[in-house]
């Protein structure tokens, strides 16, 4: 019943939380729309997991409000939590149960009536690719499958908001790709928040990014726009018979040049003047034997480092 859920599924305002004397979360505010995947990005210890624990009601914030589908999580926890699905950092699995029994337990725990469970179970099993493992003990499953069971328990009751804490940690590349596809699919019907320190993950599945550092949100934008942030123009070029560095330096438009190895150079240029055409002509003329020319891609990593550095220096991005 997607029409029954309002467009804004999750709102958190000015969350604060401290453990003892140490304040770990300062004034975190978040908003999530239906059908949106939000990536919470940050180094280890930035406060991502604590924020997620607060959003799911596992710990209460010292101050601030959280609303899930318009219901206050602190005042009416049982009503609000029915709209939440949560996968903590370590999947909360009972190793002695079978996959089937565990998922039925999770569904019933989230308040599904017994007659709705079989249908939800079949759908979730199929979505998470667990069909041939249904009668296996969870303890005997591989890490990748355990992670899938963890995701399955978070989505079996079709919650409006799915919160996943580092869902791809410890998986092999194929499993990571499958889980990412699954999360992307989830994003079409549910709102998803996922935390990660992998920038590629944000690039490939998130609509929006919030960067967290030392308990504060320091940057938030769509992930496409974030990639444009701090754009550089440049390329790497390699020759089988390379000329001297100074010759390349002399080509008009080249603003900076680094020698990567004997045959390869990284060239940065100004946005207005692209020296690649001239370089190609020169290469043909002097027989430098051009091997490849690849434009530099802004990696999210660079952006991330740039933003956090600027924060540390006290400069607003």
């Amino acid at each position: 019943m997607p029409n029954a859920t309002p467009d804004i599924t999750l709102t958190a305002r000015k969350l604060k939380r401290s453990f003892g004397n140490q304040t770990v979360i300062h004034d975190v505010s978040l908003q999530l729309k239906r059908g949106e995947v939000l990536g919470l990005l940050g180094h280890n210890g930035a406060g991502k997991s604590t924020t997620m624990q607060m959003l799911t009601g596992c710990i209460t914030p010292d101050s601030g409000t959280i609303e899930v589908c318009g219901i206050d999580l602190v005042k009416q926890p049982t009503l609000a939590k029915a709209h939440l699905g949560y996968l903590p950092e370590t999947p909360p699995l009972y190793r002695e149960l079978r996959v089937n029994d565990y998922l039925i337990f999770a569904a019933r725990l989230r308040g599904m009536s017994a007659k709705d469970v079989p249908e939800a179970l079949a759908l979730t099993m199929q979505r998470c690719g667990l069909n041939d493992k249904r009668n296996q003990l969870i303890g005997t499953l591989s890490k990748g499958y355990q992670q899938r069971v963890g995701i399955a328990q978070a989505i079996i009751h079709q919650p409006a908001v799915v919160i996943l804490d580092e869902p791809t940690v410890g998986l092999d590349p194929t499993q990571i790709r499958e889980i990412r596809t699954l999360i992307r699919e989830l994003g079409n019907q549910h709102s998803v928040i996922l935390s990660t320190h992998l920038l590629g993950e944000v690039e490939s599945i998130c609509d929006r990014v919030e960067i967290m550092q030392q308990g504060k949100l320091i940057y938030g934008d769509t992930s496409a726009r974030m990639q444009r942030y701090g754009q550089v123009s440049g390329f790497t070029i390699s020759f089988r018979n390379p000329p001297a560095l100074s010759i390349l330096q002399g080509v008009s438009g080249v603003s900076r040049i680094e020698q990567v190895n004997a045959n390869q150079f990284r060239i940065l240029h100004s946005a207005e003047q692209n020296p690649s055409a001239e370089l190609l002509t020169l290469a043909a003329q002097y027989d430098w034997q051009l091997e490849q020319l690849t434009p530099l891609q802004t990696r999210l990593e660079d952006v991330f480092v740039q933003i956090t550095d600027e924060q540390n220096a006290g400069v607003q991005p």
Binding site: K81, A82, Y86, P88, P92, L93, L109, G111
Partner: peptide, 14 residues
């Protein structure tokens, strides 16, 4: 210890 408590705490239960 197994961190399964999070499942109970995040479920709509008192």
């Amino acid at each position: 210890r197994n961190q399964t408590l999070a499942l109970l705490l995040s479920s709509p239960l008192s």
